[in-house]
Every structure is written in C-alpha cells, then in structure tokens.
C-alpha cells in the first residue's frame, strides 16, 4: 500500500504494516520530544537552573492535563446548560429533565441499585472467601479462581454472563443452551427470558460486576487479614475467644480501613459502569444507568446538552466517595 511510502505520521492507515510503522513513528516522535527536554535540562546550571528543570520536566504533563482534562471538563459543564444542539442557553433544564423525566428517573433508580448493591455484596463475598481460604491448602490457587475475572475486560465478562442467561423458546425439542435456564429445566421449572424482565434484569447485570469486583475485594482484604500481628491472634486465642468473636472483635476492627477503601473503590467503579450495560442489553428493557445514558444521549440521540449534564452528574456523584476514600487512605497510612 502507498501509506508506508508517502508517510506522514498523522495520516490514517489501513494495512497492518502501515499501522506498525505509524506506531513506531509515534514512539520516535515521542522519544525525540523527550530528547529535547532532557537536552535542555542538561544545560541548566545552579539554583535558577534547578527551577527551570522543574518546570521543564512538568511541562508536557501539565500541558496535556490542561488541554485534555481541565479545558474539556469546564467545557462540558458549560455545555450542560445548553440545549440538544448546543446553540441555545437553557439554564438548568437538562438537570430538571434528569430528575423529572420518567426514563431518566428509571436511569437514576437503576444507578442507585448498582451503587448500593454491588460494593456491599462484592466486599462481603471477597471478605468471606478471604477468611475461608486463609492459610488453607492451595490458598493461592483458590484465590486465583476468584481473582481471574479482574483481568478480563468488562466486555468479555458480559459475553460470558450473557451466555449464562441465554434463553431458548420453551417449545418442542428445543434445548436450553444457557446454564441458568438449564438448571431451571432440571429442577422442573419453566425457562425464563432473564434480560427482558425489569427490574430483575438490572440485578442480573449487577451480578456481573460483583463477579468481577469480588476478586479485588478478596485480594485487598486478604492482605489486610495477613497483616494482623500474630501475637494479637494468639492472645485472643489464649483468652478463649470463639471463632465468631475472633472475627467480630479482632479481624473486623483490624481491617476496617481496608474494608472502607474497598467499598468506596468498588462504589466509584460501579458508578461509572458502562461496558456491562451496553454489552448485555444496550440499555434496553429499563436497564440503563447514568454512565450508559451519557453515552446514548451524547452519541446516539445527539442530545449534547443532556449528555453533558449526565456527565457532570457523574462527576458530582463521584466527588464525595473519592473524598471519603482519600481520607480513609490517609487515616490508614497514618496508623
């Protein structure tokens, strides 16, 4: 193809070789920029030179953050006060829509379901599993099983679970190919079209997120459990503390900071969940959430104003959780 011959690194490419060449060119451009920065830095002398090097090292990062995060963020806030086409100022109308329109209220309700259910169930499962396999034989293998979904993309996980929920019409000799429906058939019940049924379908989507996040919870909490000093456990054991007492009075208080961090972290991730909803149902059948609705409004319905308002809402909802999370991190570091 011609694109490898007449080459300009910002042109679109089609062939595999063209893509590889463009990637290498991009890396070379980047290395050249770094080379210039480091060369300039090597010229600096003395205290004023120090300052110059400081700003020089920061320059690319600050520039990218200003252009790529700060400006677009402010722009989106501004855009959220405009109409669908973005050409007429309508004040807070988009926000009013989010909190009054029937469809949008369903979106909000679903988001509440997600954010309330996912962190607590995932953390509970992770904690229970971490305790159960602690110091057991094959501990690391047992952990890897729960752990692995974390490496899988949300899209991959959604496909795995869609297959579990798969439904075949219940007639004649048609066999179910989804595990969940087959279990129902084995039990003598009717198969069910799971992903259509609101609000049950939202909870079935939440299962996917729990499946992914439980491994994260388990990993962090297991590390916290192992960090409890042995002599504390030994002392409690000599005092005759029961298994439940051990959990209630020793384990739980010791790992409390870790539990809070896990809960908030999963909460933030859940708030932004988009891939699962999009891949499982596309937001149909009343399963949409704020992050998915943002995408639909911005790119499908071409309602820029409402899309921007939903993005801003997401931002506003994340802030308190993040602030709380950082405070807890600080508190646990200070101990």
């Amino acid at each position: 193809m011609t694109d490898t011959l007449a080459f300009w690194p910002f042109d679109p490419v089609e062939t595999t070789s063209g893509k590889v060449v463009q990637m290498l060119a991009a890396i070379l451009v980047f290395i050249a920029i770094m080379g210039i920065i480091l060369f300039l830095a090597s010229l600096a002398k003395g205290r004023s030179g120090d300052r110059a090097v400081g700003y020089l090292y920061l320059a690319p990062t600050l520039l990218m953050l200003l252009v790529g995060l700060v400006y677009p963020g402010l722009r989106t806030v501004w855009q959220s006060f405009f109409n669908a086409a973005g050409d007429a100022f309508i004040g807070l109308d988009n926000y009013a829509t989010i909190f009054s329109d029937a469809d949008q209220l369903t979106v909000l309700r679903n988001t509440v379901f997600w954010v309330v259910v996912t962190p607590f169930v995932a953390t509970a499962v992770g904690l229970i599993y971490a305790i159960l396999v602690d110091k057991a034989r094959l501990e690391s293998a047992a952990k890897a099983l729960i752990f692995l979904p974390m490496a899988i993309s949300f899209v991959g996980a959604s496909i795995i679970w869609r297959f579990v929920y798969e439904y075949r019409p219940n007639q004649g000799s048609v066999k179910q190919i989804g595990l969940l429906n087959q279990v129902l058939v084995w039990l003598g019940a009717e198969p069910h079209q799971w992903l259509i049924d609101s609000p049950l379908n939202t909870f079935l989507l939440i299962v996917v997120m729990i499946w992914i996040q439980a491994g994260f919870a388990m990993t962090v909490l297991s590390a916290a459990i192992k960090a409890i000093p042995d002599d504390v456990i030994e002392a409690a054991r000599l005092d005759g503390v029961t298994a439940f007492g051990m959990f209630r009075f020793i384990t739980l208080p010791s790992i409390r900071p870790a539990v809070v961090v896990v809960l908030t972290t999963i909460g933030i991730a859940t708030l932004k969940v988009f891939d699962i909803v999009r891949t499982m149902t596309g937001g149909q059948f009343n399963t949409s959430v704020v992050a998915n609705e943002f995408y639909s409004q911005s790119f499908r319905s071409d309602n820029q104003g409402l899309g921007a308002a939903l993005a801003v809402l997401l931002f506003v909802l994340v802030i308190p959780i993040v602030v709380y999370n950082i405070r807890q991190l600080r508190a646990s570091e200070a101990r």
Binding site: L69, Y71, P72, G73, T76, S298, Q304, A311, I319
Partner: peptide, 11 residues
C-alpha cells in the same frame, strides 16, 4: 477524580 465521560465530547 475527573470521570473521563466529562472530557470526551470536547476532546
């Protein structure tokens, strides 16, 4: 803490 959704369309 900026969710990337906030930046996508202007970017």
């Amino acid at each position: 803490i900026v969710p990337i959704q906030v930046t996508l369309i202007p970017l």
